[in-house]
Design a protein around this nucleic acid. Sequence first.
DNA 1: CTGAAAGCGCTTACAG
DNA 2: CTGAAAGCGCTTACAG
Lengths: 339, 339
Amino acid sequence: MNRVTIFDVAREAGVAISTVSTALSGGPGVSDATRARVRGIAQSMGWVPSMRGRSLVSKRAWAVGLLIQRPATVLEADPFFSGFIAGVEAVLDEAGYALLLQFADSAQQVLERLPRWALGGVVDGVFLTDVEVEDARYELVRDLGLPAVAINTPVWHESLCPVSQDTLGGLRELMDHLIRLGHRRIGHVSGPPQFLHSGQRETVWREALAAAGLAEGPLVRGDFTSEGGVRAADLLLRGPEWPTAVVCANDLTAIGFISQAAELGISVPDDISVTGFDGIQLGSYITPSLTTVQTSPQVLGRRAAEVLLEMVAGRPVQPVEVEPAQLILRRSTAVPPRS
Amino acid sequence: MNRVTIFDVAREAGVAISTVSTALSGGPGVSDATRARVRGIAQSMGWVPSMRGRSLVSKRAWAVGLLIQRPATVLEADPFFSGFIAGVEAVLDEAGYALLLQFADSAQQVLERLPRWALGGVVDGVFLTDVEVEDARYELVRDLGLPAVAINTPVWHESLCPVSQDTLGGLRELMDHLIRLGHRRIGHVSGPPQFLHSGQRETVWREALAAAGLAEGPLVRGDFTSEGGVRAADLLLRGPEWPTAVVCANDLTAIGFISQAAELGISVPDDISVTGFDGIQLGSYITPSLTTVQTSPQVLGRRAAEVLLEMVAGRPVQPVEVEPAQLILRRSTAVPPRS
DNA sequence: CTGAAAGCGCTTACAG
DNA sequence: CTGAAAGCGCTTACAG
């Protein structure tokens, strides 16, 4: 497909291909006159560098990868990835790097593909998201010597650098807020147990209740989907004793919960307060608007890309901590109904 | 980064590198015994094919590209791309192809990058979305000989194949439904004018009104965002004469519109009916749930990827038409208030 | 400042 | 069935 090569340009200009290469790449060792002439000829001939040739010799793929260990359909549902990719792209674009995107069905598949990407020279580095409780990827990227940036992980080694945002502080504030409003029975709809942050959020909820001397409220396992929120509402609201507030592990869950509460004739926030987590854009447009903890996937993406490019270039990096997630108070929370 | 090469395997096995290559790639011309032995040795040595070497000689990038001509942040807002990418990925993964994702700020930038991708051998083909009214990309991919699949376009030539879904039929049904409910003043919040489908949706609205002998309702220009919906509601609902129904160009716009209507003390659907377009998942969980036309970005993505891989392989293809978009009646529409 | 040559890791005719 | 060789398009020491 590549019509004109560096060889054609050299012939046309009457110089050696090494001169063309040096002139075009901007390196030193070519007179300004020659450089200008070669560049002019290359441009007029429509020369475009072959990334294939360049990659082979430079041992750089000029691409980094995001290998998402979830079904491809989460992109549609989970707001994190969209924002994260947006942030990543903004930085990569400027650096002339491309983003390779792939989804994996299982942890096993991820562990098979990472070596292919690394040893096959497909990417120069990877982003690791969705930290799991037992996460074999960290060891793997070290063994492969593959530069990696991991989001919200405590791990840090020579080829892995964390980029993190404190989100639990915002969640603690949220719990305090509910307690100050007078809530005494506060339930929780958790996230999928394999993710590290599901457990962390659950722990914050549990500890806040304990610190306030409150009994542990009802806990339902969710799955980060609205449908999971619907099921949780069915479980929690059909019995005789509702909680007066429910802290959901993410916004989608909260929206599903609120939807099903309405279906059951239960009003939010008059009968029950409901909170989300993530801070998706639509949270401010639904009725009632959603109290939530607003995270910054786009900022994380931007910083993660910056750090990864540094690592790829062989420069030393330090873990990055972005601004903490913010508690956003909206209308889905209020004082509890008088019992 | 690539430790062990085909050369190392050949030495270890005591054969020529061509034998290793043939044995590993599964081609004919190697005895079963040799093939098995070479494969065993390659595996035990941890050999992984270098895509850089392979790409250079095979003239294939083993990747296709999606170059989105919008700010990267739309990924977060626009549900089309998430679903589309999910569908694309499902097919590419199986074929061992990767997806290269990039965003461009302007049409100009797209036109600069496509040649770099094509002539630079970065991708073997591209997906073209967001058909514009005057779209220079079609001519460009033809000139470049770059296989391309375009979504919902009328154009078709040797290196461009359309994959389409009829969405306007569903919109016509939606208009008929509103008219049958008794609505006589039906407004429209349009999409950005540069997109072909914005104009198409507006035309359907206009023609349906004309066919029913109704006066043209108020038209406000939106931008496919919820914020645009808020602004449209402000414009349409502050005056003395509201429409009794408003057809929004997409779901996000409709959700913003409903939100602002509530803010102004106007109830949906009691005071005004509001409809969306896209069929995003959250549409069924908000209150009131959203009447909309449900499109199938994931199916489009899957079919588009299938067609593109065929084109890359040099096989002949035909335009694909997926199942039409479906009208989904929910609670944001009702009979008009008695005037 | 410029040129001739080697080599990145692979596939693919072409001989034997 | 197997091997020796050329070549994909580039960059990078190394001589001149």
